[in-house]
Simulated assay, not measured.
Amino acid sequence: MGSDDDRVDRPPNGSWIEPSPPRLGSRILMTWLELTIVGITGGLLGATVGGPPGFVIYLATTLLTVGIVFHNVNELVKAWLRASQSGSAIE
């Protein structure tokens, strides 16, 4: 069938590519953009609806913003761990 080398994931040119270090600036910019879009949309929608449903929309917007921050911090930590395991950690 195939040799053991067929089971190893290698790039087509045979060289190994190390993961790049985390890009803190782009992650901060992306987080800011996501929070701005969610905040403005949730605020406008909550103010438009008003009353108890508007309050629920405000609460959902707050929950979503916390989720965005947690997601982006998690992605940064995963990138730092990958970079440190490959030996190219930023210290």
Rank of each mutant, 00 (worst) to 15 (best):
V56L: 12
N72S: 12
Y58M: 00
S86H: 07
S20N: 04
G46N: 05
G54S: 06
W16V: 06
S84H: 07
F70R: 13
I28E: 11
S84W: 10
M1R: 14
A89E: 13
D5N: 08
T36L: 15
W80S: 12
I28W: 05
R10T: 15
T31C: 08
E34S: 07
G43C: 00
T65A: 11
G46K: 05
G39V: 04
I17F: 05
L45T: 11
I68S: 14
P52N: 03
Q85N: 11
T65E: 11
I37F: 04
G43L: 01
T31A: 12
I90L: 08
R7N: 10
E18D: 14
D9E: 06
L24E: 07
S15E: 10
D6E: 15
L76N: 12
P52M: 01
L29K: 08
V73H: 02
L33H: 07
G67S: 15
S15L: 11
V77R: 03
G14C: 04
I40C: 09
G87Q: 03
N72K: 06
M30F: 09
T65W: 03
S15A: 13
V8D: 10
E18C: 09
L76Q: 15
S84V: 06
G67P: 15
Q85H: 12
V69K: 05
N74G: 14
A47S: 13
P52H: 01
G25T: 06
E75A: 13
Y58V: 00
P52C: 00
M30I: 08
S86D: 06
I17M: 04
L59V: 04
A47M: 10
L29D: 07
N72C: 09
L45N: 02
G2K: 11
G42C: 12
S86R: 03
V56H: 03
V69M: 11
S88K: 07
V38G: 01
G46A: 13
N13W: 08
A79Y: 15
V77G: 00
S84R: 14
G43M: 00
A47I: 02
L59F: 08
S26A: 11
W16I: 01
G25S: 09
L81W: 06
P52Q: 01
G43T: 04
V77H: 03
E34I: 09
D4V: 02
S15Q: 10
R82K: 15
R27W: 02
G39R: 04
G42W: 13
P53N: 01
G50F: 11
D6F: 15
H71A: 08
L33P: 06
R27I: 02
E18M: 10
G87C: 07
I37M: 13
Y58K: 03
P12F: 03
E18L: 15
S84F: 02
S84M: 05
I57A: 03
V38K: 04
T61Y: 07
E34D: 06
T62M: 14
V38D: 00
E34V: 05
T65H: 02
T36V: 12
I68W: 10
N74K: 12
A60I: 14
L45V: 11
V56E: 02
I57P: 00
D5Y: 06
V49S: 05
L59Y: 01
I17G: 00
S3Q: 05
L76G: 12
L59Q: 07
G2D: 10
A79K: 15
